[in-house]
């Protein structure tokens, strides 16, 4: 019985962290769906969001309920700005140029923000009680629970958004750009919005994770996890990233504990990379990747 509860406890906290990964991966999926571009700056955007929130909170002394929305929504405009200034010039350029550009942004931001705010790890206290919740014999970290719940709410909001009129137009752009132009949809604007939403998703994830592990450049390493989730989920499916996020979160939490008993240690960070490799080799379109519709 102990073994069962131990496994359940690990799985639950893993799944909660997985939801947060899903939230960040959502930004990669959104941009890919709208414009077919791999957004490798997503990790850095999460970091920037967390730094901005920390700055509002600590440097400007704003209360929590102002600082968090401000930091998160500022990232909407940062995302749009990145698209407007950098990505739009890349239209018609080979895919490798765009990938290098977003990766370059990621690396630049990783250096720039710690340089601006100082390299010491910042404490981002968003007022979550440190005492765990006790369910029977299991302990669940309150911070994980809150972050999982917030992530889930935002994911549900994203799904609902895709069924609004604007969301339908965004999906139309991801389907067929010339046809979108031909019926009056501004494709450039739709892609800009997708980057803005990616910024929001990244910032929310960054704040949640930053409150748990502190804010410094290592937050941008979330890129690897988000990328693993997006690739496993299939790059263009919201349901896919949700399932993939849960899988990665649970695997990452459960596998190291048991492997350690066999004398294998330090596997936690390897899980995400293994997931990327395995997906690309065995199921290149991911679990829920979109099939091209072909009528026969």
């Amino acid at each position: 019985m102990d073994l069962f509860f131990e496994l359940a406890e690990l799985s639950i906290s893993g799944a909660l962290v997985g939801l947060m990964y899903t939230l960040i991966a959502l930004g990669i999926v959104l941009v890919f769906k709208a414009s077919g571009v791999a957004n490798l700056a997503q990790g850095a955007m999460a970091m920037v969001g967390a730094y901005l929130t920390w700055a509002c909170l600590t440097l400007a002394g704003a209360p929590l309920w102002v600082a968090i929305p401000l930091g998160v929504f500022a990232m909407f405009f940062v995302g749009r700005g990145i698209e407007r200034v950098a990505l739009r010039r890349m239209i018609g350029q080979p895919a490798i140029m765009v990938i290098m550009l977003t990766l370059g942004l990621e690396i630049m931001l990783r250096g720039l923000l710690p340089a601006l705010f100082g390299p010491v790890k910042k404490r981002l206290d968003i007022g979550i009680d440190a005492a765990p919740i006790i369910i029977g014999p299991m302990l669940i970290d309150r911070a994980y629970l809150v972050s999982g719940a917030v992530a889930l709410i935002l994911i549900v909001l994203a799904v609902l958004y895709f069924n609004t009129r604007q969301g339908v137009m965004l999906r139309a752009v991801s389907d067929d750009q010339p046809a979108s132009w031909s019926v009056g949809i501004s494709v450039e604007r739709a892609i800009g919005i997708s980057w803005g939403l990616a910024g929001i998703a990244a910032a929310a994830g960054g704040v949640l994770w930053g409150s748990i592990q502190g804010v410094d450049w290592t937050l941008s390493l979330l890129l690897i996890k988000a990328l693993a989730v997006a690739i496993l989920g299939g790059l263009d499916s919201i349901l896919g990233v949700l399932v993939a996020g849960l899988i990665l979160g649970v695997l990452e939490n459960v596998a190291p504990v048991y492997l350690e008993r066999f004398g294998v240690s330090g596997t936690r960070d390897v899980v995400a990379s293994l997931v990327i490799l395995a997906t690309v080799i065995f199921k290149p379109y991911g679990l829920f990747g979109r099939e091209e519709i072909e009528r026969v």
Partner: peptide
């Protein structure tokens, strides 16, 4: 001025209703 493209170009992953709604940005 609206242009129906050669080869139809419907939004394949959207339903017909969503296809119609996608054209209402104005």
């Amino acid at each position: 001025i609206v242009h129906v493209l050669e080869g139809r170009h419907v939004f394949g992953h959207l339903t017909p209703l969503e296809n119609l709604i996608a054209a209402t940005s104005m």
